[in-house]
């Protein structure tokens, strides 16, 4: 005798439990958690280095990479607490791994915990790590067509950073297409043009973070 059983359970139910636990802990602590997602070489680590140099926020980083601890070494030079997680071929971080990495960090002394996800526009967007919001990074040489090609990331991110904006004069980046597609996918996203090397856009980026840190701390009390 066969029968149909209704389940209606999220496929990621197990991982969501870890993500929910992280979110609840950070809520009590008043710690803002931000998940940075973008392609390899789009400038995630450089953005974090410049964020450190600004000395406006106290933060730590969980670094996800397939291999090596190069990014962690770069950040450690700026006296940023860093935990490197090597995924050994895995294309994204998952909440259970992040929860373990958090144990090694001085969470009570921080304003922000960044997760620098594995360089990839697809899978990292799918996995809830317990963050307050995702930031999508797109560098100008990657091309303006990427938001529509990777719609889940650009739809689910609260902030979209267009990095390497200083290269625009040398590229045929279609800014109208980018602006139109982002407005179509995610009309309420905050989009910032950033050039980390010259510092353009960093003030706007830091102001967004500072505002969210204030909100987070206010809600913790």
């Amino acid at each position: 005798m066969n029968k149909i059983v209704t389940i209606q359970q999220s496929i990621m139910a197990e991982d969501e439990k870890f993500a929910d636990a992280i979110r609840a802990d950070n809520g009590k602590r008043g710690l803002l958690m931000v998940n940075l997602i973008g392609s390899p070489g789009c400038g995630k680590t450089t953005l974090l280095e410049k964020t450190a140099e600004a000395r406006r926020l106290s933060f730590a980083v969980i670094e996800g990479d397939l291999a090596t601890s190069r990014d962690a070494e770069r950040l450690a030079k700026h006296d940023i607490p860093v935990v490197q997680v090597n995924t050994h071929g895995g294309c994204h971080l998952e909440a259970n791994v992040v929860q373990k990495a958090m144990e090694a960090l001085p969470l009570d002394t921080l304003d922000v915990l960044f997760v620098e996800n594995v360089g990839n526009l697809v899978c990292p967007a799918e996995f809830d790590l317990g963050e307050d919001f995702k930031v999508a990074l797109l560098s100008t040489p990657e091309g303006a067509d990427k938001p529509l090609k990777y719609p889940y990331l650009f739809t689910s991110s609260e902030v979209i950073l267009l990095t390497k904006a200083d290269l625009l004069p040398y590229l045929n980046f279609d800014m109208d297409m980018f602006t139109r597609d982002v407005a179509h996918l995610n009309p309420s996203a905050k989009t910032v043009h950033v050039d980390s090397l010259s510092g353009r856009g960093l003030d706007e980026w830091l102001a967004i973070l500072e505002e969210r840190v204030r909100e987070k701390k206010a809600h913790a009390l």
Partner: peptide, 16 residues
């Protein structure tokens, strides 16, 4: 967003 983000095990057909 009402729909389009689902990742759900909806139902099973099982042999008892």
């Amino acid at each position: 967003t009402l729909a389009g983000m689902e990742l759900i095990i909806q139902s099973l057909e099982v042999e008892e």
